[in-house]
Nucleic acid binder design. Structure first.
Length: 114
RNA sequence: UGAGUAGAUCGGGUAAUCGCCUUUUAUUUUUAGACCAAAUUUUUAGGCCAAAAUAGCCAAAUAACUAAAAAUAAAAGGAGGAAAGUCCGAACACCAUUUUAUGAAUAGUCGCUAACAGCGACCGGGAGCAGUUCUGGAAACUAUUUUUAAACUAUAAAUUGUUUUUAAAAUAGGAUCAGAGCGAAACCUAGGGAAAGUGCCACAGAGACCAUACUAACUUAUAGUUCUAUAAAGUAAAAGGUGAAAAGUGAAAGGGUGUUCUUUUUUGGAAAAUUUUAAAAGAGCUACUUUUCUCUCUGAUAAGGUGACUUAUCAGAGUGGUAAACCCUAUUCGGUGAAAGGCCAAAUUUUGGUGGGCCGUUUGAGCUUGAUAGCAAUAUCAAGCCUAGAUAGAUGAUUACCUAGGGUAGAAAAUACCUGAACAGAAUUCGGCUUAUAGAUCUGCUUAGACA
RNA sequence: GGGCCUAUAGUUCAGUGGCAGAACGCCGCAUUCGCAUUGCGGAAGUCGGCAGUUCAAAUCUGCCUAGGUCCA
């Protein structure tokens, strides 16, 4: 679990990101990113009821995503709000595959520090 | 030992690293008195007015009062038997006002419970294993009897008698087979009322509940044409294949109606056969009716039981099914759901809002152990214990080892290798029900095999 | 957290407890030089699943499954 200062909690934050954020998608995962002035990067994870039926698997994938981001928290540039959205193919992926894919995306959108 | 079935309990473990939530403690720092909007800022357009919103900052300063807040570290604790479905019942809170209509729910009895469409015990019903009774059949075989053939004995011989054998028939027994009845235990059972009323019961059928109309038959009447048609009335014994269901459950005896057959007599006929009329006797079937027994229901009485009910006797009646169709009877029920609901202080300039904060909120119809009462559900008493509390939503991720179990190699055992745990995630809280569930352990019952 | 609805032929939908139906689509034949249109005929259904009530269930009752939708 991320510390509280790295979480997005408010309804307004979510609305702002949905409206003004930039999107990046691969088949299993989607990203939405927007700059903020805080000097800290904040994250939120969305796994909807339609994509995974059972609550156990929903919880599991949300925790996995969180864990992956947490491990890379030092390498990520600060000052961004980031929404990570699960898409229908995610049910068949293992933890390691997820890790690879997220790492590739982060490189691609240049969110990682040098 | 294996299989089936029912019930109860459990529902992987250890270590390391990196993290999250709650509580407590310690240290350091110094502020804090919820948040948001309106003032400020930014952007676009613009000459201004004006319009829009998106993070972030400050609600301008001061004093008083209150006492904590943040960071770091350590310790403790941190998902279920169903947390699920939301099918019932409650607690709790507010709103209405008194429980009446409407409506809804429940439905054998007694008990348990805070309550219940729940649970326990019992009653009734269903189906029916083991078993048992009856009926029918029955191979081989056994017994008895009869007949046939052969042998033996007695005898001169036949015959008779005895014994054994062969073949056949009959009777009885008979492994066993089929059908029917009763049927312990275990199993299933939304189980008031159809004799208050209404509705429905397709097709078929005369008729599906005021049954017996109609067809076919006979008599009478009318119309015309011998004969036919029509209509009504009467007689009316049997029959009318249906259907899930057919009107009072089956049996016996008597009376009795009609009809069929046989015999005898009689009539017509020249005679025989056949046939016609009438009568008598006998036999078969039989509407209807009487009596007795049986079946079902209702009522009364007696005995047993808290009661549902059971048993016995007597009297009466003979009425199709469906209430999971309407309905009737008895009992119970006010509505809305945590997004319920409550609080958020004072001064200076003021006002509004908020899915902002806190409480509600985890000590409870609580858990564990023991004793007592009870067939049991359950209750009482004693001792001990505190056991998740998140809110874009914690309880996690990775690695290593082990384990229940599974697979392969092996004749088997040992061993080696591979794999490595089902269903499933709290959201105010309880009591049930229902559904999903790998595997393990224990207990009861049934059954198969082996050994003693 | 709570309420409601739907499931019937390949598709879209009807369907009083008693024979499962319509339109489009599909197949065959005819018409045409050929295709379309048109006409005739045909096939295609565990009525979402499992139990129960009933003589009889797509329909009535209960429990599940899968979809959809509403409040907030």
């Amino acid at each position: 679990m991320l510390a509280r200062e790295h979480r997005l909690t408010k309804q307004k934050n979510f609305e702002r990101i949905w409206k003004y954020g930039e999107s990046f998608f691969i088949r299993e995962i989607g990203f939405k990113i927007l700059k903020n002035d805080l000097g800290i990067s904040r994250f939120a994870f969305i796994v909807s009821n339609k994509i995974l039926k059972k609550a156990v698997s929903r919880n599991r994938f949300r925790r996995c995503l969180r864990e992956i981001v947490r491990k890379r928290l030092r390498g990520i540039k600060s000052g961004f709000d980031c929404l990570i959205i699960a898409r229908p193919g995610i049910g068949e992926l293992s933890y390691q595959e997820l890790e690879e894919k997220i790492e590739r995306i982060l490189r691609k959108i240049k969110l990682l520090r040098d």
